[in-house]
């Protein structure tokens, strides 16, 4: 059963301590087969340590985790046979070519002969590196390296894919191309994807579900839409036509929500509830406050992120 694509990732109370520091401090996760899970968090939050434990490169200090149905602490070789990983460092040899990397990696996985040859060509074509396959890695751009990294992770047809910050430092075009390929893998081939990222947009576009980690603990989890609805509030920003109206505008908007940061000359509040925009406009009209500009910002994962990991939240709690 375990070898089939009907197991995802299950984690219970996973801990990794380095001396006195608990880099990962008791996390629980459940990722379904074929799901794309986005793992968000600032630098040093514990993302990479979690990935290293789930990919068997680092033994956990406590807790339990199964990947593809195998225990990461006791069944390392079976876990490794089921997963592919593109880890944060672009760990490529500058003096070998793309094809040579794929040949080495596939041979170490025991793939040989004609099968290997065909597989290498298929993967190179899929990541758009066929013509660059014989060039040394030191001549590759950042995007090409990431694409080769992905091909290397896929060489033994894994059922679960770990991508540790796969698009860090890439230009928007390369980033979109990589997203498309990852989306296709999950959609068409049923590959489970565990993706860590610092880019909220990436998680928003790609992930079915998102987990936010901070100081080694998961502080929020859910679909991007639910998280945004739960935590983020829409913001309305109004620029008065006449500067003299500023005070009246502030009093008026204050009735609809809490003041928040705005551009110079503008005034903004986070709206208390949904569908308040018509009420605001009506009030502006009734009280004859003329607006030169009105902007409505829908909540983003950024707001969730800030709310869950930023100092502002902690500051509010202290208060």
């Amino acid at each position: 059963m375990s070898g089939e694509r009907n197991h995802g990732i299950e984690v219970e109370g996973l801990v990794r301590a380095f001396k006195d520091v608990r880099a990962v401090d008791g996390i629980d996760l459940r990722i379904e087969p074929g799901e794309i899970y986005g793992f968000l968090g600032p630098n040093g939050a514990g993302k990479s340590t979690t990935v290293h434990m789930l990919t068997t490169l680092l033994p956990p200090t406590a807790g339990r985790a199964t990947v593809a149905g195998f225990d990461v602490a006791r069944e390392g070789p079976k876990v490794r046979a089921s997963i592919g990983a593109a880890l944060q460092e672009t760990a490529l040899d500058p003096f070998l070519s793309g094809r040579e990397h794929l040949r080495l990696q596939s041979s170490l996985h025991g793939i040989r002969g004609q099968t290997r040859k065909e597989l290498i060509e298929t993967l190179l074509a899929r990541v758009g590196l066929t013509s660059a396959g014989d060039r040394k890695i030191r001549t590759y751009s950042g995007g090409m390296k990431r694409r080769l990294d992905l091909a290397l992770a896929l060489i033994h047809n894994p059922q679960i894919l770990f991508l540790d910050e796969p698009t860090t430092g890439l230009d928007p075009q390369s980033r979109t191309a990589l997203w498309e390929e990852v989306g296709r893998l999950a959609r068409d081939e049923g590959v489970t994807v565990f993706l860590t990222t610092q880019y909220l947009e990436e998680a928003d576009v790609l992930a079915d579900r998102v987990g936010i980690i901070d100081h080694g603990k998961i502080v929020a989890e859910g679909t991007p839409a639910r998280l945004k609805a739960e935590i983020g509030k829409a913001t309305i920003e109004v620029v008065p036509e006449q500067n003299a109206d500023r005070e009246r505008l502030a009093a008026l908007l204050g009735r609809f929500g809490e003041e928040t940061a705005a551009r110079p000359g503008a005034y903004a509040v986070q709206l208390d509830g949904h569908g308040k925009l018509p009420d605001v406009i009506r009030a502006l009209d009734n009280e004859d406050v003329r607006a030169a500009e009105i902007n409505l910002h829908q909540p983003t994962l950024d707001d969730v992120f800030l709310a869950k990991t930023g100092r502002t939240l902690e500051g509010a709690e202290d208060a």
């Binding site: 990919t55 068997t56 490169l57 070789p77 490794r80 046979a81 997963i83 990983a85 880890l87 944060q88 460092e89 672009t90 760990a91 490529l92 040899d93 990696q105 170490l108 996985h109 025991g110 290397l152």
Partner: peptide
């Protein structure tokens, strides 16, 4: 250099 760049990790993930 392999250790530093993470190439060793790449190898460690294969059945080597």
């Amino acid at each position: 250099r392999d250790i530093d760049t993470g190439f060793l990790n790449r190898l460690a993930l294969t059945p080597i």
